[in-house]
């Protein structure tokens, strides 16, 4: 088991071994969510928000997933002030930053339009 502690502003994507995750901004509770859509493996990290942020929509087939159910597959993590500690197996971890539309304009609700 490995604990990795990172500044929250230092990354928004990571790979643990072969699996990819992204930092899902969820109010005060950031979630290290799996990037792979459970349907056909689409890039959930490139999806959009629905129902005022309560659901994520996969860009491939428009399947919408409640944030709560995404969190069930998320890596165990604890945020303490401006840092987050992530618990993983002993696989290699890579982190990077990319443009994630899903974390842009969280206040806007697609359903409200």
């Amino acid at each position: 088991m490995k604990i990795t502690t990172l500044p929250l502003d230092s990354f928004n994507s990571l790979a643990v071994g072969a699996r990819r995750y992204f930092l899902l901004q969820n109010g005060d509770k950031p979630v290290i969510a799996p990037s792979e859509c459970p349907h056909r493996g689409g890039p959930l990290n490139l999806g959009r928000r629905k129902a005022c942020g309560a659901k994520l929509v996969c860009p491939w087939h428009d399947n919408a997933y409640p944030t709560q159910s995404i969190e069930r597959g998320a890596l165990p993590a604890i945020r303490r002030c401006a840092e987050i500690s992530i618990v993983t197996g002993n696989e290699d971890i890579r982190v990077w930053t990319e443009l994630l539309p899903i974390n842009q304009g969280q206040g806007a609700c697609e359903d409200a339009a």
């Binding site: 290290i32 890596l75 165990p76 993590a77 945020r79 618990v87």
Partner: peptide
């Protein structure tokens, strides 16, 4: 707002 727990523990 300073401590949160997420994911599959």
């Amino acid at each position: 707002s300073e401590v949160s727990v997420s994911g599959n523990w």
